[in-house]
Nucleic acid binder design. Structure first.
Lengths: 107, 107
DNA sequence: TCTTTACCTGAACCATTATTCAGACGGGAA
DNA sequence: TTCCCGTCTGAATAATGGTTCAGGTAAAGA
């Protein structure tokens, strides 16, 4: 054990609150079905039933997953008649996607 | 249901394999303790017992979490005598961190 | 060699999360 | 109003993930 190293690093460690918030954000991205939904929405705005058909999931399951994405503000939505149209919330998501894709390409 | 929209989007949807790999990557980042470990390593290289002290976890728990980070190549390590020193694997991690922090700042 | 320190591993237990099903709500059309 | 369609919700079950404990390996020193 090297107490001096520990003391140096301790103030740099993420606070529990920030670590928690960040973990919740990554959790929202840690499911293949949700990533498929996002990749579909990256292309165009879609309503729930179309999303379900595009990624081959039940509509209820899609609705549950969209709630998770909504809770982290990854998607936004608008109601039009009987349909609710979802789309990506902001541009960070696309940048994030590229970063990760790049990391995963490296063998 | 709008079959034309579904047909347009379907080829843009992530393949199951890629979605799976990406989900596993984000899963590795979806735990507050692992994020604390990474934030410590972003500052300097550390051995397991110092990491455990810095983030106030048991050494066994740290070892388990490091295995997850290793499996996604988020960290690398080298043995020196009885100690194993861990550090961040590459520069994408820092960029990723900034992207997410920016997203989370937006209220 | 025997002991100690640092680290890793597997299994058990507990907590969290995903999926499905059934039903409810809300808007539009008859 | 009544019915249908699209969407959401809550509960039950199944699966996944984290922590702890006990034990096991590897390296250094007595």
């Amino acid at each position: 054990m090297h107490i001096d190293n520990v003391r140096q690093v301790q103030p740099e460690v993420l606070s529990t609150e920030k670590a928690q918030r960040m973990a919740e954000f990554f959790s929202a991205l840690s499911d293949p079905h949700r990533l498929k939904l996002l990749s579909a929405l990256a292309h165009q705005e879609l309503c729930v039933c179309d999303l379900a058909a595009a990624v081959k999931m039940g509509e209820s399951a899609v609705s549950h997953q969209l709630r998770v994405l909504r809770s982290q503000r990854l998607v936004k939505y608008r109601r039009q008649g009987r349909n609710v149209y979802y789309s990506l919330a902001d541009s960070h998501i696309a940048a994030l996607y590229r970063e990760v894709a790049e990391h995963l390409e490296e063998s």
